[in-house]
Nucleic acid binder design. Structure first.
Lengths: 236, 236
DNA sequence: GTATGGAATTTGTATAGTTGTATAGGATCA
DNA sequence: TGATCCTATACAACTATACAAATTCCATAC
């Protein structure tokens, strides 16, 4: 369940909040009872954390009165990590730098349902990796109905771009019907491709694109490396 | 014969008893010591069985407290128009909220920037857990500017609802300015509150809500248990 | 105004119980 | 031989509960 100690994390959290100015020097912390409720742990676990902080001179407790912040706390270092931002409109449609798989095969039940075709109908499958600055950002898999788009695989291999290929096949105008986002743990193969560790969190986006008449033209799934991407939903 | 391993039989026996309603969802199993005495095996053999059940999501253990039956995991589709309570009631479950922290304190740099106030200005902090049928679905933290909303904490403690409290404070009409979504691994405290394992994937949503004149009224962060929710972005 | 007394609050301490982890070793089977 | 299963022991981490000791707060008396 917990690979690292709970009380350490609680001490770190309180320390960070002191550093951020949530509790001014000389100010009082919430009571042990309140803290234990907030963190969802026993009061003794909070006491362990407070005792550690007291030993390091950050706080001091007065029986019957409370726990107080001792002196001026050091600046809490705010992580300035570089993050990649990606518009949600690009989810599932990211132009690929690396196509790893292009094939045509019968649709399975899920794919058929999403594309509103019969199970077993032919679909094109395109898989790849998108990168930025040489770092893999996302894996994607797009499923296209083969019936209305017979030439898609050839055009994709020629142009290297999914969007350009769709346009060349007469589907210039398509809109996103819906996007569903959830969090998943990386499986070994995915972790390898994204250069993250197995079990690291990923953002999985599932989208269906429809043409002008509301017919599905693409069923796309994208797995983003969780720590490298923030999806921004404009207005939503 | 006894071809099958002991721990498997123990797991199967406990699983059957759970299914029979002998131990209700959220209820506590006998202690490992009691179980090892009952089955006449070493405590570690019982632990092996319990670990297997935990890996399959049937039970979850809390150090020092016991092993508890996990409620059935369900997926809740959340969207721009579909709020938490609606999604849960639509799934035939009863939503509930547990407020773990309500306090007023100076804003730190990040909070001030998001709410477009000065660092050090007073803000209200509300934290809690959203649950469906007693099973935790999400952790949330909302930051409100204290200036325009002086009575918010009192109203929230009275009503227990954030949206209702906002309405009572004269902010009936607010919209989401932006939402940023990323995947995060659960830290120990978060894992404890969501009853998932440390490192399990979570969906973190950061949103700013503004009133009719575009003034920020809420800066909210929500951590969803990754395997229990799907965010749906309509239209995209 | 100021002191007093008592209730409520808050930290300190003690004890026992429960799960998590580490180490070591025996038994069985392919 | 090596892997899996099971036993045995010890200790660490956390929970649960109860009570003691110090402080704060407030109504009341003077």
């Amino acid at each position: 369940m917990a690979r690292s100690a709970l009380w350490r994390e609680i001490a770190a959290a309180l320390e960070a909040e002191i550093g951020r100015g949530h509790f001014p020097p000389g100010g009082r912390l919430p009571t042990e009872a309140e803290l234990s409720a907030r963190f969802g742990v026993n009061r003794h676990t909070v006491r362990h954390a407070l005792a550690d902080m007291a030993a390091r001179g950050l706080v001091h407790a007065r029986r019957g009165a409370g726990v107080f912040v001792t002196g001026r706390a050091a600046e809490y270092p705010l992580g300035r990590r570089v993050r990649f931002h990606q518009a949600v409109t690009a989810a599932g449609m990211t132009p690929s730098r690396n196509l790893t798989r292009i094939e045509t095969r019968p649709a399975d039940a899920e794919e058929a349902a999403q594309l509103r075709i019969a199970a077993g109908d032919a679909v094109h499958v395109v898989e790849g990796v998108s990168m930025a600055d040489g770092q893999p950002i996302a894996l994607f898999r797009s499923i296209f109905p083969a019936g209305p788009l017979p030439d898609l695989p050839r055009v994709i291999t020629e142009t290297g771009s999914v969007t350009a290929a769709l346009a060349a096949c007469g589907v210039a105008d398509y809109t996103r019907e819906s996007t569903r986002i959830t969090a998943k743990a990386a499986k070994p193969v995915q972790a390898l491709a994204l250069r993250i560790r197995e079990g690291d969190p990923m953002l999985r986006s599932v989208a269906v694109n429809v043409d002008g008449e509301g017919r599905p033209v693409e069923y796309g799934i994208t797995w983003f490396a969780g720590d490298r991407v923030t999806l921004t939903v404009a207005g939503g």
